[in-house]
Amino acid sequence: MSELLPRIPDSWDKDLTYQAHGTLSECVIRELEPVGQYYLAHARRKLHNYSFLVDER
């Protein structure tokens, strides 16, 4: 069952594609446990500076 998205409200400026209201809160720096295949994929992307898309090719 997928969620329904709302319609664009009338108050929305139709010329804008998006509007930013803020940024992400400060992240916490934590240490990953270096186990599992997803971690290894993460390590591979980070080492080679790959994005998710490049990594999949």
């Binding site: 969620e3 998205l5 319609r7 400060e26 992240c27 934590r30 446990e33 390590a43 980070k46």
Partner: peptide, 17 residues
């Protein structure tokens, strides 16, 4: 270098209809 990683502090999501 690889294990030390930023983590989201709060959930990020979308408001539904």
């Amino acid at each position: 270098d690889i294990t030390i990683t930023p983590h989201l502090t709060k959930p990020v999501g979308i408001v539904n209809a």
